[in-house]
Design a protein around this nucleic acid. Structure first.
Lengths: 212, 212, 212, 212
DNA sequence: TATGAATGAGGGTTCATTCAT
DNA sequence: AATGAATGAACCCTCATTCAT
């Protein structure tokens, strides 16, 4: 109580660690059985914490759902960024982003499955993913690569395809699902079949050359 | 014993009416708050029936969910069929089907919202819709109108766009959402932007000329 | 309404038949799944009658249970009486009665199983069976064949052995179970092992010579 | 974190106390009205706990039934053991065990009544009691005291007599019921009336000299 | 901060019984 | 006499949340 700063800093670190234990546990469980089907007690137990401790870190169940979804979104974002942002062609970015997103979801099925759950059981989450998508699409439009306008619905359709891709991939679809999803998105944006295919092919080369 | 038929017919009528009260109540509630979030007691209460009465008409909750989804599917099907089947071009059929589906969902938002719920919370239902979709897509492919193969994923993508269309429309999107969704589907199938637009335009004319 | 007598007699016949349908149904079901586990609706359905009809014949569930138990007791009694009553030795009667009782229960497992159920789930029934038992034991005592007094407990013990015999026989025990149960009862009554065995042997001969 | 042990010990103490409240309540109620006729809510209410609390201590109703039966079995066992095992004569042991069992059941009618219920409504329990019985009977057989073989049915008959004894005693039968039940068992096993009576008499002396 | 015992509303389901027809 | 639709209390069980320690 006297030495405020050091103590509270260590406390903060501890707080952070405990919080992480909870979100990790929640991620694991919700990914496996779905968001709604995961109970607060199960989360606490998985985190090796007492039932009531949960409420020292989250106001209610909704709050941890939000936190976990955000965490996964962020983690996926971290796993992606490097190559994608180096692409100057908006269309290539859109395609590469989608393809990578799906591949990461397949490589980390815990993330992927949570996302699928979040899409259907936790509305607020959608916006998180849509954000990045919008940026890439906007870039492509600016560059005159796409004929479609940038509005709500085009993003909705994009997201829908992304979801379908993740879902199919998690359900055992081969890796070409990712590339196809990307290609479909380009077509939706108004790109010709030939051009979309070219970008897809280029991306598949890039994806193959990057380690993961 | 003599007046068998009238009696049992009146009883049947009553049974039918009560059953309808239940499915109607279920439709209303599930449409509003989602399938899982609607409890059997709520349904019974909304139907102004005692809790236990529910189980005289449905073995369990799953059964009424199935019944309601089936009823809505059937109602939508009835509202659609006539014109669509008269179209000989598979591509036109695909587009017309999607557009009409979305418009009906918008005209009967109670149906539409239930469908959205059913897509995510009642797996069996998806297949019902996918079935008709597959037929139309197959026709188009046979006619050489599409370049994409007819496989799982292409249907998944199709359904995803349909869902996005219904959802956007229910959320307040204008009527062009329906036409756009149809157009996107055609593009996904590998049709050129111009051709897809042509079919969309033709469909919009047809839709306008049919009363509903 | 005018011709009271003929009508009501035919009605009585019909009433009786319907009542029998219900008790038969109850017997079948309760025998299979136990008394408590059989519901009134199931009984009515098995009797091909409407739910509510049941209450025109029985005040409540307890009443049909009583009726069924009584009916079975009576049926068993009818199946037994002839030979047993011709035995003049009380000890032989006791043994023969028990043995036959168990054998009939094994031959008509529907009866047997109901009895087992009734013993444990329907107290009042016990007295029905005890009645006949008491008579035979009393006779033996009068004849000086047994050393034990005729009181509550000796009858309880008797019944307990009878029950154990029926139960073991229904559970797959061989036919010697019936003879052994009878022998045990004689021993309980104070008869010497040798004498009890003699009577058992004599009974087994009688049982073999009677068709059923 | 430092005072782990005291804290958790106090918690354990509380847990133990609450659990005991529940088992006690269950014992009382099940003893009065039977096992099946006692509902979880009644148990919780009798224990002055909320409904849901029950499930923090027992997975389901079956578990508390098992726990209560086990507890009573154990309590009875603890109340018995000392003298019985000191008897070297298997026959004496059999008789003494039965007599004591019945007497304890009479002295603690709550236990006794639960046992009666358990015999008929909780199958698993029967085996618990049969186990000890078998040991004693086997000993007597080994010593050549009994002429009957040690098989399923002889144990069934034994149990049946024990049950009848407990039941009669609880229903108001005098203390000689216990001794008589024991005597009957010996007779069933093939011991002569005189010898059985001798052992009974010896046991009654022992029982009188033991405090309870 | 952390615990974990306790809560109680709510979920799905069954069933003896009543009553209008 | 017969029907069978309707009732509603009761049952077992789950879970988000609170609170004394």
């Amino acid at each position: 109580m006297e030495q405020r700063s050091p103590r509270s800093s260590s406390n903060n670190a501890k707080r952070e660690r405990t919080r992480a234990r909870l979100t990790d546990a929640a991620l694991r469980l919700m990914s496996e059985r779905g968001i709604n089907a995961t109970s607060v007690s199960e989360i606490a137990a998985e985190a090796e914490l007492a039932n009531g401790t949960f409420y020292l870190y989250f106001r209610d169940k909704a709050e941890i759902v939000a936190a976990v979804c955000q965490a996964v979104t962020r983690a996926m974002h971290d796993d992606m960024s490097s190559t994608r942002l180096s692409l100057e062609d908006g269309a290539a970015r859109v395609a590469f982003g989608t393809q990578q997103f799906i591949e990461i979801a397949a490589a980390e099925p815990v993330w992927g499955r949570l996302l699928m759950s979040a899409f259907t059981e936790f509305g607020a989450f959608k916006e998180d993913v849509a954000h990045y998508m919008r940026l890439d699409v906007a870039l492509g439009i600016e560059q005159g690569r796409f004929s479609e306008p940038l509005d709500e619905f085009v993003i909705d359709a994009h997201l829908a395809i992304l979801r379908a891709g993740v879902s199919a991939r998690l359900a055992g679809g081969g890796p070409d699902v990712a590339a196809r999803a990307a290609e479909y998105q380009l077509r939706i944006l108004g790109m010709s079949v030939a051009e979309a295919r070219r970008i897809r092919a280029a991306n598949e080369r890039k994806a193959a050359s990057s380690d993961r």
